[in-house]
Design a protein around this nucleic acid. Structure first.
Length: 576
RNA sequence: CGGCUCGUAGCUCAGCUGGUAGAGCACGUGACUCUUAAUCAUGGGGUCGUGGGUUCGAUCCCCACCGAGCCGACCA
């Protein structure tokens, strides 16, 4: 009996699975399948003169089939690439009916199935390197049809592009879009490259809590959860800064962590609720020193990934070659607005903002206004990597006051392609100053700023024991990956970006149907016809419903026993 | 949160000043031993996102909702 929940193609594949079992072929064998070559390796190294790869064993997914009677061509895809297979009836089938070729290969295998093949490599008349198959093994039967993407002369036809499906079913995206797999490989290389850089300098990679009784280290709204045994509220970390600095207090002179952080805020092309950041803290260093490290590290990343410091992003080339441009925030504003705001008081700043068309509101302090002007007028213009130094103190409660400039802190960001690439400062290690800064944040919090930091007594206690002068750094890995892989959206550098859940239509329990005297076998039929809840049958014409049911039964070859007209009538009266 | 756009077959898309739908690929059947977006013949496949409204009649017009994308707001 057909399963009407399935579409035709899914049904056919399930039938094939049964047929295979009848032929004694396990569609999901347990045995290992030992490969002795990769597709990429074959394509790169095969040479007809050398007569290499004459006994290869490879495994992968069938991506296309061209069947011509007793000979066929198949494209097989493994993790490294795609290669053509040549399959001949006489090579793989010995019995009279040639079952293995005529039935198993031609009828019961599909695009999407995973198989292993043994054979020898040769070049076809068309000049394509191909594996001549002597033996194949089904390794996994695929029950859902893949999107079919075709290609000729580098031109892609029917590309699988629907973003919703690509993100929700990333596995499908990865199967049919090899460039997507590359992006994620690059992302991993990027992280490896940074880790290598940091390890080489002797910094210690550490792990700190994700579940925190107090969240801190950034201005953001947290996710809240609850621990049963402790009966206590815990927060998912928004940053790991405060824990890493405790480790500097403890005596390590360089610690870093690649951490998943969580911020309960908006989602868009640049924001996902969970994201990855690397934070680094180095004792006895300052922000000027850290600037050099950032340049060096990011330049290395670009070189490791691309072999050059120049990276194509959209329609521009970004060059990470050292040294990068450096501006103080005031200089940057002067550069892009021709106005020197370094000595302005709050009233004149508001006036300037108004003149520049930068929206400000009365709750903003001096620092916030300056930051706003910078964000509006400068940041979008900074395409090539540029350091911006010396931020207003109000925005930076964990940064040390500037050694010589009043009202500023020793902080820098690197801006690239109009976006922040990193954030760093000379860490505040004066516990009394730090307490005052936290208290300022508490006031903001009381005024309703949901992102204001909370006061962390234990962190202050740690500082009171003494933290060496320390340089700290945070780099958003997702944002950097976007740039380094030329992707326009954060969702393209996260395997599984956050999505609203897929909603399934609400259906009544089978018991609700059977209570009316409806036989179980008819429930899927009724639901398929759109009667997801019994209440939807109400006030229906019983004769019409009866006819529809019998018709459905016949059309879909359900071979169910039709209910009588009276029975159907009874169902409907029972609802009423 | 606001503006715009989109949601039709397994996939990519067309369609209609409103008369319950078409193509290509995929799939089924048949032909074909070096093909390559294989080809040829033939066939099946759709509650046109969901729910209301207008209408004799809605996939199309209107409203609401759900989901997605882009832009903006907020936010780093």
């Amino acid at each position: 009996m057909p399963n009407i929940e399935l579409n035709e193609q899914e049904q056919i594949r399930r039938n094939s699975r049964e047929e295979l079992k009848k032929l004694g072929i396990n569609p999901y064998p347990a045995d290992e399948y030992r490969e002795n070559a990769s597709i990429q390796g074959i394509l790169a190294e095969f040479s007809p003169d050398r007569k290499n790869f004459q006994d290869v064993s490879i495994a992968g997914r069938i991506m296309s089939r061209r069947i011509m009677g007793s000979a066929s061509f198949v494209e097989l895809q493994d993790a490294t690439g795609r290669i053509q297979l040549y399959v001949r009836r006489e090579d793989i089938s010995t019995d009279e009916n040639a079952t293995l070729y005529n039935t198993v290969f031609k009828k019961l295998l599909d695009i999407g199935d995973i198989i292993g093949v043994k054979g020898f490599v040769f070049t076809t008349q068309m000049g394509e390197v191909t594996v001549h198959v002597k033996e194949f093994t089904l390794l996994s039967k695929s029950l859902k049809p893949l999107p079919i993407v075709k290609e000729k002369d580098g031109k892609v036809y029917d590309a699988f592009t629907d973003p919703e499906m690509r993100y929700r079913q990333r596995y499908v995206d990865l199967v049919v879009n090899p460039q997507v797999r590359d992006v994620f490989v690059k992302r991993t290389h990027l992280v490896n490259s940074m880790r290598e850089f940091l390890n080489q300098r002797g910094y210690l990679e550490v792990e700190t809590p994700v579940l925190q009784p107090l969240y801190g280290g950034a201005a953001a709204r947290p996710f809240k959860t609850h621990h049963n045994t402790l009966d206590q509220t815990l927060y998912l970390r928004i940053a790991n800064e405060l824990y890493l600095k405790r480790l500097i207090v403890g005596g390590y002179d360089g610690v870093y962590e690649f951490s998943k952080d969580f911020r309960n805020e908006g989602m868009d092309r640049f924001h996902n609720p969970e994201f990855t950041q690397v934070e680094l803290y180095v004792a006895y260093r300052d922000y000027a020193w850290m600037m050099n490290l950032v340049e060096e590290m990011i330049e290395k990343v670009a070189l490791d990934l691309h072999g050059t410091t120049q990276v194509k992003v959209g329609d521009r080339i970004i060059d990470f070659k050292r040294p990068w441009k450096r501006y103080t925030m005031y200089e940057a504003i002067r550069e892009y607005t021709r106005i020197d705001i370094s000595n302005m008081d709050e009233a004149r700043l508001i006036e300037t903002a108004n003149k520049l068309g930068v929206p400000v509101d009365p709750t903003m302090g001096k620092g916030k206004i300056i930051d706003q002007i910078f964000g509006e007028k400068c940041e979008p213009n900074l395409v090539q990597p540029t350091f911006i130094m010396d931020y207003p103190i109000e925005m930076s409660p964990l940064a040390k006051k500037h050694r010589s400039k009043e009202g500023l802190v020793e902080r820098f960001e690197a801006i690239c392609n109009g976006k922040e690439l990193c954030n760093a400062f000379s860490e505040l290690n004066d516990p009394i100053d730090q307490r005052e800064r936290f208290e300022q944040q508490l006031i903001l919090g009381k005024r309703g700023d949901e992102e204001a930091m909370v006061l962390d007594e234990d962190f202050l206690r740690a500082l009171e024991y003494g933290m060496p002068p320390t340089a700290g750094l945070g780099i958003g890995i997702d944002r950097l990956s976007m740039i380094m892989t030329n992707q326009g959206s954060i969702q393209d550098v996260l395997f599984f970006p956050q999505m609203r859940p897929e909603k399934k239509a609400v259906t009544d329990e089978p018991a609700t149907y059977t209570a009316l005297g409806i036989q179980e076998a008819w429930i899927p039929v009724l639901q398929k016809m759109g009667f997801l809840q019994v209440s939807m049958l109400k006030e229906l014409n019983p004769n019409k419903l009866h006819q529809d049911l019998c018709g459905f039964n016949k059309k879909n070859k359900m071979e169910l026993k039709n209910p009588s007209q009276e029975e159907v009538k009874e169902w409907i009266t029972k609802i009423g």
